Each structure stands twice: as C-alpha cells, then as structure tokens.
Simulated assay, not measured.
Amino acid sequence: MYGWIIGGLAGLDLGIKSLIEKQDADTFPRELIAARGMIQLHKNHNHGFPFGFLREKPELVKAIPLMVISAMAGALGAFMTEKGRTLEKLGLSIALGGAVSNLYDRLVRGYVVDYFSIEWKRLKKVVFNLGDMFVFLGSAVFIISQAVGSLKVMGEKKNI
C-alpha cells in the first residue's frame, strides 16, 4: 500500500509539472480559476534548493536529495518490519512521494518545476509544487507521530 502512495503522489505531481511545462511561459502567472483568487499558477524552474539555494552547485543539488531519499526509504523499510506504526509509515510514504517527484525533476530536467503560489500574506512570494507540499505534510505527520509516541513512552515510564 505504501508503495502505491509514493508512486501515486509522485505521479500526480509529475503529471501536473508536465502539463505546466507544455504551456507557453508568457501565459504565466495567472489565476487558478476554481481557487477564487487564492492560488496563482506559475512556470518557474528552480535549479537549486528552495529560493535557489546552492543553484551554483548542481551536483550537490542532485546528490543531497538522493541521500535523503535513500535514508527515508531505509527508515520506511525498517518500519515495515514492525507491526503498527501506521502514521510513521504513512508520513514517510507521503514525504517520499513528493521527494521522488522533485528528485526526478532534478535528475531528468536539471531543475524542479514549481507551479503555484498561495495568495496570502508572505506566501505570495513563494512558488512551489505539490511535491513540496507532500514533503512538508509527510514530515509533519511523521514528526507528530514520533512526538506522540515519545510522550506515551514517557507516561508509561512515569507510571512504573
């Protein structure tokens, strides 16, 4: 099931990126009609990490995500040997789906396609993609699950 989540989320993001890439850059930015002005579509090519960080070091921009994804996949593999831990597995799967999509972009295109911004306060200046959202969401699920698990263990130790 978790492999399907990873592949499905990566495929969704890559499909949208492909649609954006096929469109003329002169038609961007523009409003996403169904979003009532809250989302702007863009066609940005990010050659580095967020905000273009390390764009002048393309080999690092490819190698670091590959190492992180390998570690995340290893962690997911380790969790798969344990019963339960569903939220940890789900969080890692969601994050991996987004990370794999962005890694594909880096390795195949040489840049990550970022395609939308949320038109609210400072977020207006940030253009990202669903893969970024999946990494954020999956990481949050994983961290919250780990924190709750740690609190449970601490509570059990207190009661001993």
Rank of each mutant, 00 (worst) to 15 (best):
M67I: 15
S93G: 02
Y111Q: 11
A95I: 09
L123C: 01
A73F: 15
E59N: 09
N102A: 06
Q146F: 12
V141K: 10
T86P: 00
V100S: 03
F136P: 05
D26C: 02
V112E: 03
A140W: 06
E59H: 06
N159I: 11
L96E: 06
H45Q: 15
E82I: 06
S117V: 07
V112Q: 04
V148T: 07
D24V: 13
L14Y: 03
V61T: 04
V153D: 11
A35L: 08
E56Y: 06
F79S: 09
L66N: 02
L66A: 15
L54F: 10
G3T: 00
P50F: 15
N159C: 02
V113M: 14
G74W: 15
A35S: 14
L32C: 02
F79G: 04
G131Q: 06
M72K: 00
K17V: 12
A73N: 09
K22N: 08
F49I: 13
L137P: 00
N129A: 03
V126L: 09
R30G: 01
A71Q: 11
G98K: 12
F128L: 13
K22A: 13
S18H: 14
L76T: 05
E119V: 12
K83G: 13
G11F: 14
R85Q: 13
G48D: 03
D13V: 09
V113L: 11
I20H: 02
F51T: 07
L41R: 04
L96K: 02
L54S: 03
A10G: 03
G110Q: 13
F79K: 10
F136V: 15
G11V: 12
E82F: 03
I5H: 02
G48I: 10
S18G: 09
R85W: 02
L151N: 02
K62L: 11
F134A: 08
A95P: 09
S70W: 14
L92T: 10
E59G: 03
K158T: 07
G97E: 12
S139F: 12
V148C: 02
G131Y: 08
T81M: 10
W4L: 12
V127K: 01
D24Q: 10
I64S: 00
V135N: 04
K125Y: 07
A35V: 08
V141W: 12
W4A: 09
R109C: 00
R85E: 11
D105Y: 05
K62G: 03
M38N: 06
F28D: 00
N159P: 00
R36E: 10
K57H: 13
D105M: 10
Q23F: 05
Y111W: 10
T27H: 04
F136K: 05
V153S: 01
G155A: 15
L14K: 08
F79E: 15
V126F: 09
A99V: 14
L130T: 12
I143K: 06
K157E: 11
P29C: 07
V68F: 08
L76I: 06
M133R: 06
E88D: 11
S93E: 08
K89G: 10
A25D: 07
A140E: 06
F116R: 03
K17A: 05
F134C: 10
K62C: 09
I160Q: 11
G48F: 06
A75G: 07
N159L: 15
G52S: 11
S93I: 14
P29H: 11
M67E: 01
F28T: 05
L54C: 03
E56D: 15
I16G: 01
Q40H: 14
